[in-house]
Design a protein around this nucleic acid. Sequence first.
DNA 1: TGTACATCAGTGAACGCGCGTTCACTGATGTAC
DNA 2: TGTACATCAGTGAACGCGCGTTCACTGATGTAC
Lengths: 214, 214
Amino acid sequence: MSNDTSPTDAPPTVTPKSGYHHGDLRAQLIAAVRDLVETHGPDGFSVAEAARRAGVSSAAPYKHFKDRPEILRGVVSEAMDRLRLAMEAAAAAHPTGSLEAVAAIGLAYVDFARAEPGVFRLVFSLTEGHEHAPDLQTKGESCFGVVVQAAAACLDLLPDDPQVQRRAYMLWSFVHGHSFLHIDMKTKVTTAKIDDWDYLMTISRAILAAEARG
Amino acid sequence: MSNDTSPTDAPPTVTPKSGYHHGDLRAQLIAAVRDLVETHGPDGFSVAEAARRAGVSSAAPYKHFKDRPEILRGVVSEAMDRLRLAMEAAAAAHPTGSLEAVAAIGLAYVDFARAEPGVFRLVFSLTEGHEHAPDLQTKGESCFGVVVQAAAACLDLLPDDPQVQRRAYMLWSFVHGHSFLHIDMKTKVTTAKIDDWDYLMTISRAILAAEARG
DNA sequence: TGTACATCAGTGAACGCGCGTTCACTGATGTAC
DNA sequence: TGTACATCAGTGAACGCGCGTTCACTGATGTAC
């Protein structure tokens, strides 16, 4: 009791399920891959290198993942969780139904892309060829759901109203494109520096106020 | 003269610059890589496989390209040319300054992404790490220039007016995001099927009519 | 509490593979006289 | 027109490399009695 640590047996890093050999290789592998993807691009990681970074033998990852693609899927899954949480937190910081809540969700999205461009790209390159990952698809829909909820509240309609779906998709397209252009072009092309918040507010207003057809 | 081919010495496929050994390996390699990228994703091509498809030895490509990255750059360069031409042609099919011209440019962009999702993705994954390819950057700016021109004509302002740049960037973000979401999600998430033309017209109108701040 | 056993995370050596790139070469073409 | 030479696109063999994955193993932990 004179120790400075918590009274429990002090879980190593993340998952406290046990204090086994390594402690928590799975999470550390995912972190290592995240790093690698950030440094060398979506396809620029190898199981071997990830194991090296986690300080284990090259065979160790196979105790936690079936094969290479499954590791990538793990990274994407984790990233999608974080993205959704960030979006939800952003929305919660503003009044329900406000335009600010919508813009804040967009900003969280852009911020994620900017903070982890490699992982962000990975999330969206993986959709091809990994169709048989229903959990990833579900998580993707959850993320979209956050936008839908905010748009519905803003328009004072039900989430499954086609108008809401349409506007939410517009918002998402826009923010998605902005995110990608931002990380691809860095500062170029867009000669003028953009204030993201102003920008997202303008767009949210334009999309959520525009009449359906014309 | 009794032959069924044309009177000239019948250039093999594309560039007629000479009837050398192979004829026109460079173009055929680029075509092969395009195919491979389409099939196996941006990083899923190898110099060896491309050579195999073009029917030459694995060393032959190095007579036309310095190394692997240069081949990819060649593919991207060619793709950007085609994209710009498609956008220009789309704009030319409508009255200068019309909203239709803007929407048509957007549609050309989306169509390109849909027709060649792999190459489209490649174009935008390459921007990282290939900063030292000024020709690619120039071509990218040319593509953006097409949008800027149309937006300027539509708003009746000069192309370098900040308002024009801003609106053009908004349009591009939106269309870019829509393109990516479309090829990533295929039909999913967007529960309702989208009529691209209506969609792009609505967006063009919303963006080019929206007031700057609020 | 102590012993025997089952579990299973991590080891380390090994495999076969396809890749990117190099090299000296060959042989068809274009050019100068 | 004919011959000698320079050019250079494509060859094919070879290299070293890092990778993904497998395998029998070891040794720390948790569990039953």
